[in-house]
Design a protein around this nucleic acid. Structure first.
Lengths: 347, 347
DNA sequence: TTGAAAGCGCTAACAG
DNA sequence: CTGTTAGCGCTTTCAA
């Protein structure tokens, strides 16, 4: 069989660095130097080799480069590609790395620790030059271990680790902005939808937002007026939150949903019951997702600029690949976007 | 500098196939055979090597594999990761390839022919074993050229090419379902929002939907009642469509928007004007996107099962990598999802 | 400044 | 059934 049949498809042999070197009449080592803009090549040689590369349409093989040096490719792990925020993030990252001739490879890793760990391993196996993990569900310890193997930057976790870089929104400040705004409107009794009050991992944005909310309420001597309910951060969770808020003895006049998706679920549920916002209570989200200002939906929310966060994390990772060993942890300033789901309380 | 400093980070040396072979007391060739489940290894050796791999935590280097054989990685090109349909597609693909120990790498390529071509090149440079392109904005000719270099499957284009596989919804049937449904409701004058009536590329779903619409109307002797307006397939385009429909001498009693995004833009615009659907006219979308049934939005639309399409395209690509050289073009049956934006005409 | 040559981790002949 | 060996395309010493 093997001997008689041709391969399924006779693919054109690729142009290699050897072809380029031959064409330019230099050694492969020289061609390699030109390719990498490395030190030790005369201007004339540089030009000659460059010309050959262009003429032959040479494109270096990433795997081959990866075996000795860099692949010039960064890996990005996200839980699920279906998230508008990730998309904007990716755009920000690309805008920074493309000019440095880096590529971005994205892998969706699901919402479980196990599948995320596998995805990270796969990225490492592909010899990525560096990794960006978006809101990873991995322990600090696991992240440290990964950082020992490969330059690492994370987005959306308030890390203090000395071995990796991080970029996240100042969620605490975000919560404070919301409380300020609602109190300014005249609200005193304010609800918060927490994802998990007792999550041991205090670095997760969910927890920082909750802590920030409680702090802000405390600072205004309104801690007694803080109504915290618990539900998953999903549309479903929003529906549940509506029920939990309704079940309160003294329901709040405003609710800070913790995330847009929750607020949207709440709006949806309220609508189904023939109730509207802000007539039922004022409602605030967090994320400024696309859906938060679409058609009849016009949700007051907090914006964390995904574009800037993407650009920043890309810069950090490139620096780290470049040799920086100290850690940089950046907090980006969020901004309150007042829209029509908030108003002064009725009574 | 170079000589005195250690590398930025001393990364642990990876376990290689040589280590495994040494540990198991066999040759690297034998270890490789076990790794690849290749023919010619006794059961006892297989077990011994497998045990060593597990014990040492061996993970093969993809680049190294890619240099000689396969990388066991498929590349997926999408225009923008922020598209719910792509996400579902990716899930479908993963569910099929994971059990075959393949990985998926996604790269966002933008909406321009140039940037998409670059992205495809990058994927090829990474030695992917095969490529899945989602609704590529590339000429038939370009696709043929790519297919000559690498196993190729595309989603969302009605291709007839002999050198690549394709999966798409039967958009023509989808349009027919919509016309049937609307006519059944009593509508005769029906509008359609086309993306570009004169696009020369008749394989694009936009064109197939338009042609299918006109065919279906013709078959019912209603061609004179077909009102085709033109606008980009975006929310903005939806707003424009509302104006164009309003400008008609005899406005239609129902509008088939061609895509959910357009229908949603129309709903949004109508709402802003204080008008509602289906009171103004019945409205139908296409895609059954998440947003089509969210909160107060409850759009009649056509569903193309992204999950099944993903599974199918993955199967096709694996087959092709496996050696199939004939082309397979699959049309998936779409389904009409009646919701509350459609009703019988008033007059 | 340039080139020769070794080797990255793996697979694929080919011998034994 | 098993092992030896020669590369894949690139980078990197190390000499010239």
């Amino acid at each position: 069989m093997e001997g008689t049949n041709r391969p399924a498809k006779a693919r054109r042999k690729r142009v290699t660095i050897v072809d380029v070197a031959k064409h330019a009449g230099v050694s492969t080592a020289a061609a390699s130097k030109v390719l990498r803009n490395a030190y030790g090549a005369s201007e004339s040689m540089r030009q000659r080799v460059q010309a050959s590369m262009d003429e032959l349409g040479y494109r270096p093989s990433r795997p081959a480069r990866g075996m000795r040096g860099r692949t010039f490719t960064l890996g990005m792990m996200v839980s699920d590609i279906d998230n508008p925020f990730f998309s904007i993030l990716a755009r920000g990252i690309s805008s920074v790395i493309r000019p440095n001739s880096y590529e971005l490879m994205i892998t969706p890793a699901g919402y479980e620790t196990g599948s995320q760990a596998d995805a990270v391993d796969a990225l490492i196996d592909h010899q990525m030059d560096g990794l960006i993990l978006v809101a990873p569900i991995l322990s600090e310890e696991h992240l440290e271990r990964v950082a020992r193997e490969i330059p690492l930057a994370i987005v959306g976790l308030h890390s203090q680790s000395p071995s990796l870089d991080s970029v996240s929104a100042d969620d605490s400040l975000g919560s404070e902005l919301v409380v300020d705004y609602l109190v300014g409107l005249g609200h005193r009794r304010i609800g918060f939808v927490a994802r998990d009050r007792d999550d041991p991992d205090s670095s997760r944005p969910e927890m920082v937002r909750l802590a920030g909310f409680l702090d802000a309420m405390d600072r205004r001597h309104l801690l007694d007026e803080a109504v915290v309910v618990e539900g998953p951060w999903s549309q479903e969770g929003g529906k549940e939150a509506v029920r939990l808020i309704d079940a309160q003895d003294r329901p709040p006049t405003a609710v800070f949903a913790g995330a847009d998706i929750v607020a949207l679920g709440m709006i949806s549920e309220l609508w189904n019951q023939g109730r509207t916002v802000p007539d039922t209570y004022s409602l605030v989200g967090f994320d400024n997702s696309n859906a938060s200002s679409f058609g009849p939906i016009d949700l007051t929310t907090v914006d964390q600029s995904g574009l800037e966060m993407g650009q920043q994390v890309a810069r950090l990772l490139l620096e780290r690949i470049g040799g920086r060993t100290s850690a940089v942890h950046t907090l980006m300033h969020p901004e309150l976007i007042p829209r029509s789901t908030t108003a002064s309380p009725r009574n």
